[in-house]
Design a protein around this nucleic acid. Structure first.
Length: 574
DNA sequence: GCCGTTTTCGGCCCGACTGTTTTCAGTCG
């Protein structure tokens, strides 16, 4: 059983939980949490790095001890430190920490004084009214714990960025109508374009006398008010999404935006830099003693620590601060840089519209070319195309191209990659196309080595241009299939073919770290809508967001090329 | 446990809100 970074991170997080409950040195606890985050965000499996002789202590926050523990976990799948902790402190206590309102101190009190180890035992104690009798607890706390556990039993997953957008926009409009309000900005992971968000952080600037917080709690989509103060209010919407709203003075907008955009790791790093320069940085500004030296704009806060502005999508403390210091920040790709879309469907397979309708929709969104790539026959549920129906579609595209203005259609196919890695259509018809997108839609559960071989064989087909949705995951629904993405990216570089960043909000499966790896290996990434109807093109912005998180610039993206440049690149693959 | 134009010790990000208190600890982001 190979050890993945997620396994290592989970062990470090559990160690941190249990140490915290034991009342260990909080900085030691933080060291384990930092290490968990670092390992999780590596992009490549630590096991592989070790194999290649990489010195783990070069990673930030990983010293001699933690490097040794990572090696131990990779080698044995276990960590003696955790095993020892389990002898003293029941493992289930770390689950209790996940109950909102319960931190290490309260979990320790529940365990020591009432012998509670599991959420179930806690729920029983709460129902019997034992919890309120403990020092530091009261009837209200008990009630909240009860509700939290009951809610956790039917807990809500994270929200897709698209879903969060649908809830955020009307709320932003509601707040903007409040008297005295100037700016309303959604910060947090939403602004960093995370693929999913757990809650919304909304920043408001308003006059001191503005009733905005009062108006917020009167919003009719609210299910519950968790806290309600003059500058901070937390509510839960009926859909289950938690929303934190903060009001700041305009003079602090930049500092507040910087602070509430996060990520936490990025902010800690920035504050540390401030500290080294004798500055205190908080959500109100950067201060030298009593004197404010920055805060009105985000750029001023970064300038205070001698850095250029850093785009929100980069703020994960994964090298962006170092890059900023060296003047090597990427000039991130923008939606407007996309000149075309290389993946779309029509009524010929499982799309909803005609080729012409899709072309018009793409054109009105400013695209100059669109590849029609319906499914091939192997994907029977979509009534995929065979040689004869595809040939007919090619003729239709030729006819349409003669009359279309402002956009050109490319001939393509999303061809099934069969279980053994062959493609689902004969070479003769594939040779007539402008591009061939290969995709896996079946046999998701092959063992990793076999799945990887399957895809590599398909990529080596002489007509293969582009690998669609490389991991096959559907967020909150289906895990990625077991595949060695590092190897696939490397071989794509050697083979000279391309990888897709599928912009559907539940896919986005060329995750940020793989985007970075593709960039390092010189593999161009196509940001494709995979549109099945006109509205599908609007998803491109989510693809661009993910690409920006992966440090991609316009030059790293295939479909920022002009049509003639694109044709040359595609020829190279055929 | 990590880290160092403070290099082997002594620091480690910072503030709002809540509940149980009566001056503040705990939790959260």
């Amino acid at each position: 059983m190979p050890i993945h970074n997620t396994d290592i991170a989970a062990i470090f997080d559990e160690i941190a939980d249990l140490l915290e409950i034991e009342g260990a040195n909080p900085f030691r606890v933080r060291a384990y949490r930092n290490a968990a985050r670092t390992v999780q965000g590596l992009g490549r499996d630590a096991a592989k790095l070790i194999e290649e002789g990489f010195e783990l202590t070069r990673l930030p926050g990983i010293g001699k001890d933690l490097a040794g523990k990572i090696q131990e976990i990779v080698r044995t799948g276990r960590c003696a430190e955790l095993t020892n902790l389990h002898k003293r402190t029941p493992a289930a206590l770390s689950v209790l920490l996940k109950v909102p309102g319960l931190g290490p101190k309260r979990v320790a009190a529940l365990h020591q004084q009432l012998g509670i180890n599991t959420p179930k035992q806690l729920l029983r104690a709460v129902r019997q009214g034992h919890v309120r009798e403990l020092e530091g607890f009261g009837a209200k706390t008990e009630q909240r714990i009860r509700e939290a556990i009951e809610a956790q039993l039917k807990k809500k997953a994270r929200f897709l960025l698209l879903t969060a957008t649908d809830y955020a926009q009307p709320l932003v409009q509601h707040l903007k109508q409040s008297r005295g309000v100037k700016d309303v900005i959604v910060a947090g992971s939403y602004r960093r374009c995370n693929e999913t968000v757990g809650d919304l952080d909304i920043l408001v600037t308003a006059t001191r006398s503005s009733p905005v917080m009062h108006d917020l709690v009167a919003y009719d989509e609210i299910k519950e008010i968790l806290s309600h103060g003059k500058t901070r209010t937390t509510v839960i919407l009926k859909c289950g999404l938690q929303v934190d709203v903060r009001v700041v003075d305009r003079i602090s907008l930049g500092a507040a935006l910087q602070y509430f955009t996060g990520s936490k790791a990025h902010n800690i790093a920035i504050r540390r830099l401030g500290q080294q320069r004798g500055l205190k940085i908080n959500e109100y500004g950067a201060f030298k003693g009593e004197q404010r030296v920055a805060g009105a704009t985000e750029a001023s806060v970064y300038a205070a620590v001698k850095l250029p502005y850093i785009e929100p999508e980069l703020r994960e403390n994964r090298g962006e601060i170092e890059a900023a210091r060296l003047g090597k920040l990427p000039k991130l790709v923008r939606l407007a840089d996309l000149k075309g879309d290389l993946h779309s469907h029509t009524r010929a397979s499982d799309g909803k519209n005609t080729i012409d309708e899709m072309a018009q929709a793409a054109r009105t969104r400013g695209l100059r070319y669109l590849a029609i790539t319906d499914h091939s026959k192997g994907l029977a549920v979509t009534r995929g195309l065979d040689t004869r129906t595809l040939a007919k579609q090619l003729e239709e595209i030729d006819r349409l191209n003669e009359n279309l203005k402002g956009i050109e259609l490319l001939k393509g196919i999303e061809v099934e990659i069969l279980e053994d890695g062959r493609l689902d259509l004969p070479d003769a018809i594939l040779a007539e196309l402008d591009l061939v997108i290969g995709a896996v839609h079946s046999k998701f559960d092959l063992p990793g080595a076999k799945q990887t071989r399957r895809i590599l064989r398909a990529m080596n087909h002489p007509h293969f241009s582009l690998l669609a949705h490389p991991s096959g995951r559907l967020l909150e629904e289906r895990e990625p299939y077991d595949v060695d993405m590092t190897q696939i990216i490397r071989e794509a570089g050697q083979r000279g073919c391309f990888l897709e960043l599928n912009a559907q909000p539940q896919r986005l499966d060329l995750i940020d770290s793989y985007c970075q790896l593709a960039k390092d290996e010189g593999v161009l990434v196509a940001i494709n809508s995979d549109a099945h109807q006109p509205g599908g093109f609007d998803n491109l912005r989510f693809g661009v967001g993910q690409a920006r998180r992966g440090w991609l610039e316009a030059k790293d993206v295939l479909n920022t090329r002009s049509l003639s440049a694109l044709r040359k690149l595609l020829k190279g693959t055929m």
